[in-house]
Design a binder for these strands. Structure first.
Lengths: 348, 348
DNA sequence: GTTAGCAGTCGGAGCGATTGAGTGCTAGCA
DNA sequence: TGCTAGCACTCAATCGCTCCGACTGCTAAC
């Protein structure tokens, strides 16, 4: 792979991957000649293929079979696509996408879910969407709301909305002044900080004689934030997990099970996406041997609002997947999502 | 099936199901004789089997094969088990269950999830757990909490906790008196009612000239409740969905896919469980032809706190599943869950 | 460097023989 | 009348075999 391939070799390789993606069958020299290179004979193509095999780009399942692309071939192919521009979507497809985004979705989670659905439906592959709000949520304000029976509802208001599902019981009863000073204390400590910051901090040091009397409330608030962190670290949505089973690559139960196990575990999905490098917009990885999703390719794209990456979408499919289409869809989603998110911003 | 089977036929049938559950292979007359009826010859058993086949209890995949139980056979078998008492769990199993319930779980959802996990892990089948809090949640109180910038947080306090994920914007600003009268109005209408009641009611009739000025707040509250209904109607947890793929019955991708599609759709799971009759404690259904989960048996159990059914657990597995064990586990869970829930009640 | 032509390879489909598990039947026995 | 021993029969599954055809690799000629 040190040397550049000749133009003809590249052309043959591209044709081979194209055909293999379309049919899933080993590609013969005659196939390539018929569809792509009627100017030379199949024998010539055979000779080239033989060379490509030696270079590790293609493989032969057995002596009398056609050639099958290997990882380097896919990589070259994907590179070509990114150069040449992605495949355009059909009108029906763009219409479909727009219609699915037509209803107003307010929750971030709903948008992620819808986006993942759309991607999966249009591409017919398994898709996932991760909203990266992790540590960057800013705590605006903490409110304590007295309820009946010595209970206090803790409200944590952030720029992303409210984290408020915890009632705590206070020993002191619900004296008004007590609640007020507790609220002051909590806001001193927490307000204006991001959740990410809190994680690394030594919070005990912030406590002093005065605040120490609110110790239990303080601990409760901290617990809520930590729970929130754990649950919402990265919000992962997976759609169309079962679609993978339609492809012959996963037509045996063992592999299918493996795949589903990985894909249903949100942590591993998050990890898969995290490996995408930040610097590039599209990242295609093919055949991760470890991690149970070998025989797969993963294409990811990052979505930004302003300068900040707010989400990352991905498609996972068989190595021989329709890269053009998938990249096209992810590309188009960038526009569509941008519109939805901006809309959402305006509403606030 | 009109006539009672002879004791010997029953015994043979029971043996046959036992063996079939253990091996998954068609059972021969010799097998039955060896393990269960050394007092008569295989020829006699063959004659009985032949009769049972005519009665529709068993089937022969082909002329020279053993017999396989049909639905009626399973039903008889399950009836026997329920009579005779379920299989006792091993010490290791009960210890495992207790240890998994050892950590304090406060959220209803966490408990459901844990329970489903335990059931699935001990039985090695797919399990689900539905918390039926649906319409019976009582609204205790509605609170409006003013936030910065003309926004108001709506809090709906119920006996099950708080539904509070909605901020609304009020045109009037956040004048204290306005908020107070709105709160009064809302509590007049909603407090003390269950969510289920609200659904059937003509709420507009409750509005009068006075309340009409709070129309937007009123509508917002209603919307929140309706959203809650839709999302929390029945809280369904499914665990170990992939375990089904270990059983040869689902060793082909087509069936596996079908099964997973049903099981991942919480609505259909909810439906499956809803079909369990309320009157009986254990409900076993075998081979629902429609609904994609044919070739399956479903065992459900209801769990009560006091007199109220709070949840329903189920196990779904191949028809030839280890009924004794599953029923034993569900039975034991009744005790274990009872303890956890009571504990939880005490804490409140 | 390219091509036509041909021999060689190998997977897969199709076919028949063989095996063996398990039955149904029948004649004889208690 | 009910049970059993024994035997003939059936049929899925397995194996081995051949045949077919889709490809390739090679070689000799252009």
């Amino acid at each position: 792979m040190s040397k550049e391939l000749s133009e003809r070799k590249k052309k043959i390789l591209h044709a081979l991957v194209d055909l293999y993606i379309a049919t899933g069958q080993p590609v013969s020299s005659a196939d390539i000649q018929k569809g792509y290179m009627s100017d030379v004979s199949s024998a010539t193509i055979r000779a080239e293929l033989s060379a490509l095999e030696a270079l590790g780009y293609v493989d032969q399942p057995h002596t009398s079979a056609g050639r099958v692309p290997l990882k380097p071939a896919y990589q070259l192919y994907v590179g070509d696509i990114e150069h040449m521009g992605a495949g355009a979507l059909t009108d029906a497809e763009t219409a479909f996408i727009r219609s699915r985004f037509a209803d107003k979705l307010s929750e971030v989670r709903d948008i992620s879910k819808r986006a993942a659905e759309i991607i999966s439906d249009v591409t017919n592959y398994t898709s996932f969407f991760v909203s990266l709000r992790g540590g960057s949520v800013v705590i605006d304000e903490i409110k304590l709301v007295p309820l009946k029976a010595g209970k206090v509802l803790v409200l944590i208001v952030t720029d992303e909305g409210i984290i408020a599902d915890k009632t705590i019981t206070v020993s002191e009863g619900v004296r008004h002044e007590y609640i007020e000073s507790a609220t002051r204390m909590l806001n001193n400590v927490f307000a204006g900080r991001t959740i990410g910051e809190l994680e690394g901090m030594d919070l005990d040091s912030e406590l002093n004689a005065e605040t120490d009397s609110f110790r239990d409330i303080f601990d409760a608030v901290l617990a809520i934030i930590q729970t929130y962190m754990a649950e919402h670290g990265d919000d992962v949505v997976v759609e169309g997990a079962l679609k993978m089973l339609d492809y012959p690559e996963y037509n045996n139960v063992e592999d299918a099970k493996n795949f589903l196990a990985v894909i249903s575990d949100h942590d591993s999905v998050s990890e898969l996406l995290a490996e995408a490098e930040d610097s590039i917009e599209f990242s295609v990885r093919i055949g991760k041997e470890d991690s149970g999703v070998d025989k797969c390719a993963i294409i990811t794209a990052s979505y930004k609002v302003g300068d900040e990456v707010v989400g990352r979408a991905g498609v996972i499919g068989p190595e021989r997947m329709d890269y053009k289409k998938v990249i096209g869809v992810l590309e188009y989603m960038k526009k569509a999502l941008g519109a939805v998110l901006d809309d959402d911003k305006d509403k606030d």
